[in-house]
């Protein structure tokens, strides 16, 4: 900055030198850039969503939504069923593990090992989990691809998420509740079960919804566990039959695998339409779940505020 002091003796507050002018210019350019980039980010998401959903709408035909080999009905059912199975497995284990970590695990070596384990599990590439599942749940038990193995593989992916949400929820509780319960002669477990767990339901539910949303979209972990075929007969309700919809030990291609398969094994002419419809359904599920999680956590935040007021 070079301000001519002789001329601007008393005018210094009004002096705008070229450096300052440049600084203001850069500032305005940068601000504009920030607006443009962030705006295009939002536009990209909107375009992406509209494209996928619109693609699905265009592909709509009675056949696409049918529960047959050319439709996506069976895959939709498989997806929901698989996510349900995986939650049945991962929610109790994840919550219990989170409780152990927050309440029982001795500080030091055990807690550190748990932390490392959770970090490792949550950063595993899902294809690696899929391979592990393929080896352990399919090859080692000498069976065919099946929904249950797929659910186990997805559980490995959602366990760390549910464990961490439970842990965080417990750690966020006021210590007074725990002490109050213990001072009334409750055991540690009774305190957890009757006071701490009910008080943590909100955040844990949000975590479960997120885990479910992730499960719907999972594909790589299912490639070699749940399998890439599905053969359901909706009139067979004997659960031991390999074509019964509810039999968890039958192969069960999910929506995301169907999208992937339409690319690699595009044998039928309608594969593109099927992929478009399946993508649109996946997209809508993701929107519903992420909005649901958001609404739930907002509702709970409001509720607890109201209670405290």
């Amino acid at each position: 900055m070079t301000v001519d002091m002789t001329n601007s003796d008393k005018q210094y507050l009004r002096g705008v030198d070229s450096g300052l002018r440049r600084a203001h210019l850069f500032d305005e350019i940068a601000t504009a850039a920030f607006y443009i980039v962030s705006g295009s980010f939002v536009l990209l998401l909107i375009a992406f969503t509209l494209y996928v959903v619109w693609g699905g709408v265009q592909a709509i035909s009675p056949e696409i939504f049918s529960f047959s080999e050319t439709g996506i009905g069976n895959q939709f059912f498989n997806t929901v069923y698989l996510v349900f199975l995986s939650l049945v497995i991962s929610v109790p284990i994840g919550i219990a593990a989170g409780i152990y970590m927050a309440e029982y695990a001795p500080e030091g070596r055990v807690t550190n090992s748990l932390r490392i384990a959770i970090e490792t599990l949550s950063s595993l590439p899902s294809i690696v989990v899929g391979l592990f599942g393929y080896l352990v749940f399919i090859i080692m038990v000498n069976t065919q691809w099946n929904l249950f193995s797929g659910a186990l593989a997805v559980s490995i992916l959602s366990l760390p998420l549910i464990t961490t949400t439970t842990y965080d929820a417990f750690k966020a509780l006021p210590l007074g509740w725990k002490h109050g319960s213990l001072a009334l002669g409750a055991t540690h477990w009774e305190t957890i079960w009757h006071v701490m767990l009910p008080a943590s339901v909100g955040p844990i539910m949000t975590g479960i919804i997120l885990a479910a949303g992730r499960g719907f979209g999972e594909a790589a972990a299912l490639l070699y566990t749940a399998g890439m075929s599905t053969d359901i007969n909706w009139s067979v309700w004997d659960i031991t039959s390999p074509v019964c919809p509810l039999n968890p030990f039958r192969p069960g291609e999910t929506l995301s695998l169907q999208v992937w398969a339409s690319r690699t094994e595009a044998t039928s002419a309608s594969a593109g339409d099927v992929a478009a419809a399946a993508s649109a359904v996946l997209m809508i599920m993701v929107l519903v779940f992420s909005i649901g999680a958001r609404l739930l956590s907002r509702h709970l935040a409001k509720k607890s505020e109201g209670e405290n007021a």
Binding site: L45, V52, G213, G217, V259, L287, F289
Partner: peptide, 15 residues
């Protein structure tokens, strides 16, 4: 951002 994170990878791949 939250919605973007949740979009399944196969949908990205397909688009």
């Amino acid at each position: 951002v939250e919605i973007f994170v949740g979009i399944p990878s196969v949908v990205y791949g397909w688009v």
